[in-house]
Amino acid sequence: MPAINQQSEPVIEIRELITYYGERKILDGINLAVESGEIMVVMGGSGSGKSTLLRHLLSLNRPAAGNIRLFGKAVNKLSSRALHQMRQRIGVSFQGGALFNSLNVEENVAFPLREHTRLDDNTIRIMARMKLEVVNLAGFEKLMPSQLSGGMIKRAALARAIVMDPKLLFFDEPSAGLDPVVSADLDELILRLRDAMGVTIVVVTHELESAFRIADRITVLDKGKILITGTTQEVKESDNPRVQNLLNRRTEDIPVNADEYLQRLTDDLAGL
């Protein structure tokens, strides 16, 4: 495990985060801190609220209650200009890549530089190509996103995410839709990046194998609540039955309430 600077302030600090989707509570009292330089994997099944948590960390959604601090600053109190500036220190690799379809690979990677810096064209292109080298996509500069394979899209998206040399990097389901070999490649790449750039990484995934391979610490999310946060060892040895169910891919027994069951079946029917 790499040295984590415990003295400094956590890069991400979430306190008592509560969010709703309509009437439904999605996240219920989340508390989480991510230290500088570590790889934190947020794990959970579908519907656990992990995607919502990510959207809040990216300030794409506003919380109903609680607060999120990035780099020590409360994001919901930032002016839009300060938020823009903070976002330049953050990189995101989206689940489907989210490459701009109208731009080729190199233009996609160069895009943040063109928008945020005043570097000349040649410098920008060299920097974009350097990042493409890092993700092993050299030689594919001129291809359009629609011409790329799933793994190449993820790597191009990663190159774009790191082109501004962010201090904080988010991955949404990095291995979703990839075959095991390509997925393992991508995990290697994530580990290499952390070592080379000293960047703090948050990965949201449901893939157990990948999670345990790259994580320094794991947070297990279930039904909007954190079941456990700890090192991979601590999570493996957890005696929480729900964590064990998730790790061993066991289905959960949901207790049946006869009255509620009848109510659900007959709800909204005419004449009752």
Binding site: L60, H84, Q85, M86, R87, A98, F100, N101, P112
Partner: peptide, 13 residues
């Protein structure tokens, strides 16, 4: 395809 989200998180309105 989340390109709008991608713009937002890059700090591009």
């Amino acid at each position: 395809s989340q390109e709008i989200d991608a713009l937002r998180v890059m700090g591009i309105e």
